[in-house]
Nucleic acid binder design. Structure first.
Lengths: 194, 194
DNA sequence: CGATTCTTTGAAAACAGTCAATCTGTGTGG
DNA sequence: CCACACAGATTGACTGTTTTCAAAGAATCG
């Protein structure tokens, strides 16, 4: 079950982890299965786990004053899900994380995570590469959400995450892009004609 | 001249750095003065330096297909400026960074930065705290740019960075918020009446 | 000062959001 | 197996916000 993560770790770090070191990682994490619609994190609670998705799909979203859902991110195989701010600070989160499909996860608490970072140099390296990637991706998303029209946002989504279109319902993708489902539908039709 | 950074480092890490360790940091960095309107980074070139602003103000911006400037971030005393993606990957940047005021900087190349991270544990710790903060701030900015109206964006700016209003021209602040200068002006008037 | 840059204001146009109705597909229970 | 219910997608009409264009007014700098 951890095999998928092992492969992932090797790819990210451009290395091959040895059995002993990988053993430490397996010890730090726990496997967890989640049914569709089950919650990993509820708004107002403290985030306890960092989760790695081995199989399935999830979403992280917040709910604003008017009751509207805003999907912050999706997660699929090979992605991490958590509210790091809450996880580290122990402050209650403003996000919800739930499963959009049945999921197989690897989870670890903040302490377990710190422990494995100390024990495994490759895991540590991975964490930093991910931080950097995350920071670059966030930058791109800021610019897209700020400067792109609805059409450009959708084209950008298709370009960067073509699989999302088949995998997630349009209204969720619209929420992720920060546009209305109606606009999403119209723009999609528009692009189809081009 | 490095005194300001020393104070900053102590505050961020909640520690007091000793003279020997701080000496290493001074060795890794170089002081650099910049006149207003001078460029630290030009679009299409490779970013060579990570810069810490001791005094002054800068901006990082990109230029889109239609020739419009989009300010990605401002930097003032105690902030870092660079395109980390380009710095690490050696790929040409799509950003410009220039001085909005006369500046006093501390700069280091990627190699020097890696060296000082290895040599100074406190500097290393600082780097990680900053990564995390940056990631949280980026998240906030994504949600703001996606879900806020022009009025909410401006209020958010006033709340988080009240000094910016006196320090930077409105058209640049508008660009930073992703709204037109005209809308900025109108919304500002609107808020003033409340 | 004079020149440039920045800000404000007005009017029109473009874009996206909202509301409401209809359509489509899927899955469930009778 | 069919019928119904439900969630999601589409479409149209309307509304509201923001942009754009243009011009005038203020502020700043050499």
């Amino acid at each position: 079950m951890y095999q998928f993560f092992r492969q992932y770790l090797n790819t990210i770090t451009s290395s091959i982890i040895c059995d002993e070191e990988f053993q430490l990682i397996e010890e730090a994490f726990t496997l967890k299965a989640m049914k569709k619609k089950q919650f990993l994190l509820h708004e107002g609670t403290v985030c306890r786990y960092m989760a790695f998705i081995i199989k399935g799909a999830m979403r992280q979203y917040s709910i604003d004053d008017k009751g509207n859902e805003h999907i912050v991110r999706f997660g699929i195989e090979g992605w991490w899900m958590s509210d790091r701010e809450s996880l580290r600070s122990l402050k209650p989160t403003k996000y919800n994380i739930d499963a959009l499909e049945d999921c197989q996860l690897m989870i670890a608490t903040n302490d377990q995570l710190n422990w494995v970072k100390e024990q495994s140099p490759l895991f540590f390296k991975m964490a930093h590469i991910l931080d950097e990637r995350h920071s670059i991706a966030a930058q791109h998303r800021i610019e897209a959400s700020m400067n792109y029209t609805a059409e450009e946002k959708l084209k950008d989504l298709i370009k960067n995450y073509p699989d999302f279109l088949k995998r997630f319902p349009q209204n969720m993708l619209a929420s992720y892009l920060g546009i209305s489902p109606e606009t999403f539908s119209r723009v999609r039709k528009q692009i189809g004609r081009q």
